[in-house]
Amino acid sequence: MFELLGITPQGLVAQLLVGLINGSFYAMLSLGLAIIFGLLNIINFSHGAQYMLGAFAAWIGATQLGAWIGNPEFSIGYWPALVLSPLLIGASGIVIERTMLRRLYHLDPLYGLLLTFGLALVIEGMFRHWYGISGENYEVPESLTGAFRLEGIGLALPKYRLWVVAASLAVCFASWVFIERTKLGAYLRAGTENPALLQAFGVNVPLLITAAYGYGVALAAFAGVLAAPIFQVSPLMGSNLIIVVFAVVVIGGMGSIMGSIVTGIGLGLIEGLTKVFYAQASDVVVFVIMAIVLLLRPAGLFGRET
């Protein structure tokens, strides 16, 4: 049967592994979007730009910062960047929430979408102006270079890609546990349902919302640092990805944490399979699925009808 399809079983397994890697990126990005939408009711269109900022922060730390502070020897390696970049970009997200998004909560969600979309254009425009469109090269960290040879399926699986899958699944799982199984997570969920009532119980809801936006943005930046060694670090790297991630969120159900993780990985796999059998359709397949899901289950696979 496999011969009929023009691929060996080994080849198929290899392709599925690659699909899983892309899926874990989708999962992590859509998770951040889902958290932000669930709590703030904001469709965060600057998510792609914040993912790009994460990658650029890592690259700047590694190659530019030393010269800026007059000490060319100084550079921030991959591992510190994996922590520092999300913290920095998350903090910038908090500033955006406090100074801009906050003013829009009483308005239609469309205003938030427009604001964040505008922000994304400005941020991407600035980086395009400073660094050009072709982007910059970020090296794979020394300890993760090379590949595991999987003789059975004839594939050299880069160690770095395995690390990406492991790291993003761990972060997704930890976020899910935090939101669904801890007390603070319960506050977050309650804040989504009825912020006024929660505030009446003495919980600082505005602070909760700020923290949630900061966390969502930090997730995007974390994904950006993970992506930096794989993709060219370029100003438009996020805008290429963000549309697919939005489709993932819609398919999973707006605001559903579990939905975004499962759909992200699932769609990565489906996209991977499409690349094997009819590559030309691989950028459309996600949207075809989105259309079907919206027709059959308008609230998404994991969403609740309201």
Partner: peptide, 20 residues
């Protein structure tokens, strides 16, 4: 040959096909 959507970002799938 394999035709990839334009613009693309992840080419690993096509590269694996080419490798095979």
């Amino acid at each position: 040959s394999v035709r990839h959507p334009f613009p693309g970002s992840d080419f690993s799938s096509f590269l694996l096909k080419a490798q095979a």
